[in-house]
Amino acid sequence: MEPLLTVRELEKFYGKNGALSKALDGMNMTIEAGEFVGVMGPSGSGKTTLLNCLATIERATAGSITLNERELTTLKPKELEIFRRDQLGFIFQEFNLIETLTAYENIALALTIQGERVDKIEKKIAQLANQLEITSILTKFPHELSGGQKQRVAAARAVITNPALILADEPTGALDSKSAQKLLQTLTQLNQQLAATILMVTHDPVSASYANRIIFIKDGKVFNEIHRGDQTRSEFFQRIIALSAVLGGSYA
């Protein structure tokens, strides 16, 4: 069977002839359905660019991205919008919740723009909120929530549409360690119970240790990758630290 996501010889260049900078320089990777993959790499390694390309927010210079057997790089802008809406879920470092909407409405928005019916929206949100333990905060506005609560609402919004792939960009970046831990458990839960496929970009080895597999990138290419296999989370964490040291550079 085809992998869920295939990235082949992906290139993204910025600037013009004289001052060309290669953010992605022949990136290759695959992700199977149901995986929880972490992407790590030093600053300027191309993490964010990769995520933006996968998110179809930026267009690659060359190469191909296939998700669910569809080639993304050739989609037209309008097709991309629909694709993004139906196939992708997002979790951002800055939450990106809409301030004027309650938590419930923020989650519902992801469904309403797909044209989902009200009764189905209610049912889906009730069920998911229960699983993620956010039922009690659904009526609150983002400014009334803690960072951790906001991020769990954002996670609920990302997963409510059953997207093929959830992209998480430094989801714990703005959280304290306790909230971060809770969120990562939530992501694991999404991955295990709801079979959500997650790609998480992070620079934090602790966050990364929750994934099943880590892809290290450097200078716009895949540098190495490690599988968790049957290891415990702390064993996996040790391996990540060790490999990070080899990789060098700043992770901040």
Binding site: I57, E81, E94
Partner: peptide
């Protein structure tokens, strides 16, 4: 700005 960024990212179309 963030609001529109968020809307855009969760897949609200430009037309919408």
């Amino acid at each position: 700005r963030e609001r529109y960024q968020a809307l855009k990212r969760i897949g609200v179309t430009q037309a919408d």
